[in-house]
Design a protein around this nucleic acid. Structure first.
Length: 278
DNA sequence: CGCGTCGCCTGTGGGC
DNA sequence: TGCCCACAGGCGACGC
């Protein structure tokens, strides 16, 4: 579900809302969401009694710093939600897998129907040993890379732009929605080869990437028709109303009036304008 | 190396 | 009304 903008919205709200709170109890339901710990009691013990000290994001991963130099790592997969409740008494959602109850101030709940998401605790020093984290590429909103540096990076590769943007080892945080939106913004086809771009095209791609992601954060992320993405307080985002191509096949391009198309690329739906993306 | 396919899961919506 | 299929914001393991 969530890509960089949705995770960043969560990070900002978590930073204001749970940093400084102390964990009282942790409940884990089922075997899927906390699957990395051989022993789930160990996961629970790492959390109970600890204060949350920081909230960072790397790509689509959230890192909640804990007292004692542990880190709670959260990945939401396709359908994960983090939800705050003010009390412990609120009705339990279906597919509620992890409940973190604070000493003061309700709960943080992890709901995830498809169970592709996960949570685990690791030592801060060991973060670099966690494969998915250590291999993450540049975070487009965290790292200040110039477009020239960006050019250097993409021109070293000979791959199509969409899979490259979605490759977490290259850029961390971009998924299926935002890659299509970024490419439309840049006026580039999804299958352009990364080493075929002119300086101007690289500049447009770079600018589009930063603008789309910043705008999406500003509008608090994209909530699709299934309503699966909601923020920490259960509220949907607004950026879907600003999508230029995603899920708009058959509608007209806002730039050139052509009919937008949808095709399958690497098993994923891909949306674009056949006329003004070149 | 790049690229395609599959599996991991549950839910929903459309066609019949 | 129900049944079946396609598809959904991710990702890693395969095989070629």
């Amino acid at each position: 579900m969530p890509e960089l903008p949705e995770v960043e919205v969560l990070r900002r709200d978590l930073e204001r809302d749970v940093v400084g709170r102390r964990v009282k109890t942790v409940e884990v339901d089922g075997m899927r969401s906390v699957r990395r710990h051989h022993n789930r009691k160990q996961f629970i013990n790492h959390l109970e009694g600890k204060k949350i000290t920081s909230v960072e994001r790397r790509g689509k991963y959230l890192l909640l710093g804990l007292e004692g130099d542990d880190v709670l790592v959260i990945h939401l997969g396709m359908s994960g939600q983090l939800l705050r409740t003010k009390t412990s008494r609120e009705a339990r959602q279906k597919h509620l897998h992890v409940v973190i109850t604070f000493q003061k101030g309700g709960q943080l709940r992890f709901v995830d129907p498809r169970t592709f998401g996960e949570m685990f605790v690791t030592e801060a020093d060991s973060l670099s040993k966690v494969r998915e984290l250590s291999h993450l590429g540049i975070d487009p909103l965290e790292h200040a890379v110039s477009w020239e540096q960006f050019w250097g990076l993409i021109s070293q590769k000979h791959v199509k732009l969409k899979p490259l943007l979605m490759d977490q080892k290259f850029m961390a945080g971009i998924g299926n929605i935002y890659s299509d939106e970024i490419l439309w913004g840049a006026g580039l086809r999804w299958d352009r080869m990364s080493d075929s771009l002119s300086a101007q095209e690289v500049r447009r791609l770079y600018r589009s990437m930063v603008e789309v992601l910043q705008d999406a954060v500003k509008y608090r992320g994209s909530s699709l028709a299934d309503g699966q993405y909601v923020d920490l307080f259960g509220k949907p985002g607004e950026y879907q109303h600003h999508h230029k191509v995603y899920a708009r096949e058959g509608e007209t391009c806002r730039r050139c009036r052509q009919v937008l198309v949808r095709e399958r690329v690497g098993g994923r739906s891909t949306f674009s304008c056949p006329a003004c993306q070149v």
